[in-house]
C-alpha cells in the first residue's frame, strides 16, 4: 500500500491555482482545501507523512498542519474504510429515526459505530447536523447526501457501494475542475 506521497503535476498545478487566490504571503489560507485533496489522494486519511508533505508544499511548519488537521472533523487522522458512512444523529434526524439507521448499519455490517469492516470497505461514524434536517434521517458518504432514508434504502446503498468497490471522498465530484 505504501504509495509514494507526492502529488502529480496536474494536482500540483491545481494547488498553485488555489494558492494564487490569496494575497501575497497569505498562501497558508490554502491549507484546508489542500488537506481535502491530500486526503482524497492518499488513501482517505492524513498520515503524518502526508501532513509533512503538505507542510513542505506550503512552506510552513508541520505542527501548523497537525494542529489544523486535528481541529476539523472532516480530516481523518486514522485510516478509514473506502466508504465512510456518516450518519447524522442531531435532533431533527434523531426524532425521525437516526438511531435505527445506525443500529441497522451495525447489524448489517457486523461492526460498531466507529469501526471498520475487515475488508476495509465500510466505516460507520455518527456526526452532527449536516444541513439536511428537512430530509431526515440522512447519511453522507463522500460528497453524496443520502436523504429521507428507509432501512431498505440503506440496504440498497450498501449493496451499490460494495459492488462498485471504490473509495468515496468529499472531493469525489471531479474536484480538479471545482476547487
Amino acid at each position: 500500500m505504501s504509495k509514494e506521497i507526492k502529488f502529480n503535476e496536474e494536482t500540483l498545478a491545481l494547488i498553485h491555482k488555489i494558492m494564487a487566490r490569496y494575497p501575497e504571503g497569505k498562501h497558508k489560507s490554502a491549507l484546508l482545501p489542500i488537506l481535502h485533496i491530500a486526503q482524497a489522494e492518499f488513501d482517505g486519511w492524513l498520515s503524518p507523512a502526508t501532513m509533512d508533505y503538505v507542510a513542505s508544499i506550503l512552506k510552513i511548519q508541520s505542527i501548523e498542519v497537525y494542529e489544523v488537521a486535528s481541529f476539523y472533523s472532516m480530516y481523518n487522522l486514522k485510516p478509514v474504510g473506502k466508504c465512510l458512512l456518516e450518519v447524522c444523529r442531531t435532533s431533527s434526524c434523531w426524532v425521525r429515526g437516526a438511531e435505527d439507521v445506525v443500529k441497522h448499519l451495525e447489524k448489517r455490517l457486523g461492526i460498531k459505530e466507529g469501526e471498520t469492516t475487515a475488508d476495509g470497505m465500510f466505516t460507520i461514524k455518527t456526526v452532527e447536523c449536516l444541513g439536511s434536517c428537512g430530509s431526515a434521517p440522512m447519511l453522507q458518504c463522500g460528497a453524496s447526501y443520502h436523504e429521507n432514508l428507509t432501512l431498505e434504502k440503506v440496504d440498497t446503498l450498501i449493496e451499490g457501494y460494495r459492488t462498485e468497490g471504490k473509495r468515496k471522498s468529499y472531493t469525489d465530484l471531479d474536484y480538479k475542475n471545482t476547487l
Binding site: 497558508k28 489560507s29 490554502a30 484546508l32 506550503l58 489544523v68 472533523s73
Partner: peptide, 23 residues
C-alpha cells in the same frame, strides 16, 4: 473556500481564522 467541518467556524471571527488556514 471550503471548510473542514466545525460548527464554530460559523462564528464570524472563527471563520476568518479558518479562512487564514488556522484552527
Amino acid at each position: 473556500q471550503v471548510g473542514g467541518g466545525a460548527y464554530i467556524c460559523g462564528e464570524e471571527t472563527a471563520l476568518l481564522e479558518s479562512l487564514e488556514g488556522k484552527r
